[in-house]
């Protein structure tokens, strides 16, 4: 935990991928976890939306004494309210998820906040290593568990990746008792979004393997040939060295041994 760092975590209402039920959003939960590790009890957690939303208790159950709600309707744009809440508040770090699990899920919110507040943004943060002398050293999550170290000036906005530390368990009791500070700031209806047609996602068609065959024989072949490698190769009687070589060749071919 670092002293005298003002950290704000922004949280939204998540959506469980299997049941579609509202839940603590995966990345937002991690943003709160990261915030708690940085700032402990001084962490401010902010939600723009409905203060009656039960899911907020799940965030509070992570051990937050209070939670700030910028009250607004579901058709409002969260950005203006958040900007007016965050500016002129001597905040050092704002943590968000990469993409919300509900709504447009465009992932634009941290970028727009950064643009409007004029702060730098670091995307997909896995860890904040330290904060000192007005700078923070952060680790960005790259695919396949790789990391990149970046130094960013305070104040900054970070979107927290799934590779960050998992959100701690939410406890029923503290969640129930947490104090909600409800603020009413600007409410701006998201006009553009009201023009959209929103439907339940259609399953995307799988891309067909179109065979660009020039001849009948090629087309025949493509239509009748079994995919190669239905059954695997089994090595039984070769020497250990040969078997190991076969495995190693496969590893090289797949480029996993570098």
């Amino acid at each position: 935990m670092l002293p005298n760092i003002n950290v704000v975590s922004l949280v939204s209402v998540g959506r469980h991928p299997q049941s579609g039920r509202a839940r603590r959003a995966e990345q937002d939960g991690r943003a709160v976890e990261l915030g708690l590790n940085l700032a402990g009890n001084t962490l401010t957690v902010v939600h723009a939306g409905n203060a009656q939303e039960p899911v907020l208790r799940q965030y509070a159950g992570m051990g937050l004494p209070s939670l700030t709600v910028l009250a607004q309707e579901s058709d409002c744009d969260a950005l203006p309210a958040l900007v007016s809440f965050l500016k002129d508040k001597h905040i050092d770090v704002v943590l968000t998820g990469v993409r919300a699990e509900s709504g447009e899920s465009s992932g634009m919110l941290p970028y727009l906040l950064a643009e409007q507040l004029g702060w730098p943004l670091v995307p997909r943060v896995a860890e904040i290593l330290n904060i000192k002398e007005g700078e923070a050293e952060v680790l960005l999550a790259l695919p396949r568990g790789q990391r990149r170290a970046v130094i960013v000036k305070l104040p900054f906005i970070a979107s927290v990746d799934n590779a960050a530390q998992e959100a701690r368990q939410t406890a029923f009791g503290p969640g129930l008792r947490a104090d909600f500070k409800v603020l009413t700031l600007e409410r701006v209806v998201d006009e553009a979004a009201s023009q959209w047609q929103i439907n339940i996602a259609k399953p995307r068609p799988k891309r067909l393997k179109v065979v660009k065959a020039k001849t009948a024989a090629d087309r025949m072949k493509a239509a009748t040939a079994k995919p190669v490698g239905g059954g695997g190769k089994i090595m039984k009687d070769e020497t250990a060295a040969e078997k190991a070589q076969a495995i190693f060749d496969l590893l090289l071919e797949e480029k996993v041994v570098r």
Binding site: M62, R168, Q169, T170, A171
Partner: peptide, 21 residues
């Protein structure tokens, strides 16, 4: 579990799953 949120190992995940699904 209810106060400390400290169910070990997979406990937290299982409870979260039960709540959500």
């Amino acid at each position: 579990t209810l106060e400390k949120g400290d169910t070990p190992n997979k406990g937290a995940q299982v409870l979260e799953n039960i709540i959500a699904t």
